[in-house]
Design a protein around this nucleic acid. Structure first.
Ligand SMILES: NC(=O)c1ccc[n+]([C@@H]2O[C@H](COP(=O)([O-])OP(=O)(O)OC[C@H]3O[C@@H](n4cnc5c(N)ncnc54)[C@H](O)[C@@H]3O)[C@@H](O)[C@H]2O)c1
Ligand SMILES: NC(=O)c1ccc[n+]([C@@H]2O[C@H](COP(=O)([O-])OP(=O)(O)OC[C@H]3O[C@@H](n4cnc5c(N)ncnc54)[C@H](O)[C@@H]3O)[C@@H](O)[C@H]2O)c1
Lengths: 228, 228
DNA sequence: TCATATTCGTGACATCTTTCACATTGTGTA
DNA sequence: TACACAATGTGAAAGATGTCACGAATATGA
């Protein structure tokens, strides 16, 4: 996205952090702040000032020395980079415990992302409006997706249905999937899948939270070279 | 974890994938499989065979050429590496939509991780058993954590309470936090925090699922050196 | 028993990501 | 207007992670 024609590869990590920076900007905007320094953004986003500045480079937007970044302009720049021009339509498949939580959470969270329908194969759930979202039977998956040009799906079905649902979604024209099931789904080339694996995350926490008292040394910021 | 005394740094990514491999092993075990090849494990876990073999190296466990890895032994090896000897006790703070989904999901999922209590500041929820988990008022946070030697916490409170709850958890002796709130919490050195940020994940999917038709080139395996 | 096909283990290499360090440049001040 | 400051932008080094490639090991079947 550099000024010159050269196409620069933007790392996936950077994409993620830009989303975080924008959220930070929106928070600062609510507080009435007009400018923010890279170190403030870093602090709010769990990054480093260096990283923040480097990430922002890809936007083509520049802050000003000694004043930092304009909160409004940075948020706008990130939006121009991350968001589509149109609203992107999202569907959710699997309206169970997790699916309902997600529905209640995401509704209206981001102006450019709209959950327009949800699907389930349980007739108790279909035909109703759940957490503000109309629930359709699976038989209408393809039609609803096509009629609304939905391009994104959130999967919260039982793991046993995971691959089958993924197949139906991609056949229906879905271009990206946020996958909450603990299964590595196979999709055609060009479809983006983002996995959220809570069990893995919890096991990571468990691993790092034990053996700390006398365990191996982790990241440090001390200046005394490892305690002798 | 090399055979010689040298402590080898194990990457965080590897820790995560080992958790995935174990899940794959447990699945294969259920299917009655005795051995698995690195490429099978890779396929099930969304990794590459190289990665799988390299990750498994840190365990000190070896498969056998032409037969692969013993499903039972690999699972056991991963357990010895990842798990604590004792069961690690987990508490959950914030029994809202997401908190309840998590409770219903994690209960009994991993034998070495047990959610022993949950907490909320809503008197409608405290004093009851929710999804099989006793819910305490926040005033009892420290006592319950100490009495049970809980070392891990899952945070699913509103973002506004995020930092305050994190502070109370670390003061109570919690060593690791799985943070679902969209806030970068600050914790004392040595406490591990794992963030799950669904909004960021969804925005990443949204980014990669648009502009694909004629967008910039993503991962490739071409041999023509990018257009000059 | 020996040749063959297959898979593992791992050093070396390639790539991706972060951090360092410093010249650059607006900003506020005298 | 000129000066000092504080933060930015960015090459380059360092570090982390992923991939390649090949020797070693092992099951299989002639
Ligand atoms: N609940 C959590 O906190 C949590 C955490 C991590 C992962 N997950 C994963 O998320 C998924 C859903 O979890 P949950 O707790 O909401 O489960 P759940 O059983 O409460 O919900 C699953 C929903 O999917 C529906 N469903 C089943 N088969 C379907 C099909 N073929 N097509 C469409 N819908 C179908 C069911 O009717 C149900 O409404 C699971 O894969 C689970 O592993 C959940
Ligand atoms: N629901 C989702 O799918 C989802 C997705 C992503 C992130 N999150 C995040 O997870 C958190 C919880 O989301 P939710 O949808 O479950 O919200 P929720 O409002 O349904 O639940 C929040 C719970 O926390 C309790 N609570 C409030 N203040 C508290 C305090 N100071 N101490 C202890 N408990 C307190 C409330 O009584 C309530 O039970 C939020 O930070 C949200 O941003 C939720």
């Amino acid at each position: 996205m550099k000024k010159n024609g050269k196409i620069e590869k933007v790392s996936e990590k950077t994409i993620g952090r830009l989303s975080l920076y924008r959220r930070a900007m929106d928070k600062l905007a609510k507080e009435g702040r007009d400018f923010a320094f890279s170190h403030e953004i870093a602090h709010m986003s769990g990054a480093t000032p260096d990283q923040v500045r480097r990430d922002i480079m890809v936007l083509g937007y520049s802050g000003s020395p000694n004043r930092g970044y304009s909160v409004a302009e940075l948020s706008k720049s990130i939006g121009e980079f991350l968001d589509d021009l149109d609203v992107q339509k999202v569907v959710l498949v699997g309206v169970g415990n997790l699916g309902r939580a997600i529905l209640s959470y995401f509704t209206g969270k981001r102006p450019k992302l709209s959950i327009i329908a949800c699907f389930d194969n349980d007739t108790e759930k279909t035909g109703r409006v759940i957490n503000g979202c109309r629930c359709y039977p699976m038989s209408q998956l393809q039609d609803v997706i096509n009629e609304n040009s939905a391009s994104i799906a959130i999967m919260a079905v039982p793991f046993s249905a995971s691959q089958e649902v993924a197949d139906r979604l991609t056949h229906s024209g879905i271009k990206g999937i946020l996958n909450f099931t603990p299964v590595s789904i196979k999709v055609p080339h060009g479809i983006h899948v983002e996995d959220i694996d809570m069990t893995m995350a919890l096991e990571k926490v468990a691993f790092y939270s034990r053996q700390k008292p006398q365990g191996q040394l982790l990241e440090r910021r001390t200046n005394d070279k490892a305690g002798h």
